[in-house]
């Protein structure tokens, strides 16, 4: 029971890049014990900097375990490149977090990025996730994890569409939640548990947002605050660890209550 929430020695792959929720999830997974987090993105990232020297030293240590792999996961070539690179580095991955979220007017682009890419990428990584449930003897990393974990991130627009025209974004977010249920039912036979997290309004920039804007935004949230790093890291840690093994197709709404109210 004492290791219920442990992620020690796990290997994780995070898609969707380092901006938005990416930096929070990548840093948080390492802080919770993950050995290496691979971040798939077209763009390279710069490790976060802070003023406090002690804090910076800790961050530098964390970033030693966050590895960028340059690729475009919206193309088959990009997904293949990612799979080949990770296969040569790791015998398995324990945790796949799909957090690709892209908002634009163009229907095809948004569906390709938010729905097609995570679904096709998950299918491609099935062998490496399967391998995590039965690691080959002789590998250097031992893991107590019985189940591989797929965690898909979406936003509250997939629950309650906003009063602006964003058909593609809302539909793709709802779609990924439903795809999660399909993955859950189909992949559980391989000892892989799929679940999803719907996020509300988060402060995704490490720096403070404009205080006036913040007040206006937070008034609409029953919890009266934006979500922050600990909130999303805790939700992922719960689902990815032994604690979340029975959450097959479970959907966590992480929004401070915003989707519960009308208007």
């Amino acid at each position: 029971m004492s290791t219920l929430f442990s992620l020690d020695n796990r290997i994780a792959l995070l898609t969707g890049g380092f901006t938005g929720y990416g930096w929070m999830i990548a840093e948080g997974l390492v802080e919770q014990g993950v050995a290496r987090v691979y971040v798939a993105d077209k763009e390279a990232f710069t490790p976060r900097t802070v003023i406090d020297e002690e804090e910076q030293a800790k961050l530098n240590d964390i970033y030693k375990n966050i590895i960028h792999i340059e690729c475009d996961i919206t193309t088959e070539e990009g997904r293949e490149k990612l799979f080949c690179e990770i296969s040569t580095l790791e015998p398995f991955i324990n945790i796949l977090v799909n957090s690709s979220l892209y908002n634009a007017e163009d229907w095809d682009q948004v569906i390709k990025y938010n729905l097609e890419a995570p679904i096709k990428l998950t299918e491609k990584f099935l062998p490496l996730l399967k391998a995590s449930t039965n690691p080959d003897e002789g590998t250097s990393i031992s893991t107590e994890q019985l189940y591989g974990k797929i965690i898909n991130i979406s936003t509250v627009d997939g629950i309650n569409p906003p009063q602006i025209s964003n058909f593609a974004f809302s539909s793709s977010n709802a779609g990924i939640n439903h795809a999660t249920k399909s993955f859950a039912v189909q992949y559980i036979r391989h000892k892989i548990v799929a679940s999803s997290i719907t996020v509300g309004l988060f402060n995704t920039t490490p720096n403070e947002v404009n205080p006036a804007n913040r007040l206006q935004v937070t008034q609409r949230i029953p919890a009266k605050r934006l979500g922050h790093k600990d909130d999303i890291v805790a939700a992922i840690t719960y689902l990815a660890s032994r604690a979340g093994d029975y959450c097959v197709g479970t959907h966590i709404v992480l929004d401070g209550g915003v989707s519960e109210i009308r208007g």
Binding site: A184, V185, I188, G200, P222, A223, G227, H228, D230, D231, A234, A235, T237, Y238, Y246, C247, V248, G249, T250, H251, I252, V253, L254, D255, G256, G257, E260
Partner: peptide, 15 residues
Amino acid sequence: AGDYVLGSTLIVDGG
């Protein structure tokens, strides 16, 4: 850990 989960239903049922 669960401070930002509010009014939610968490399903723990093995699918």
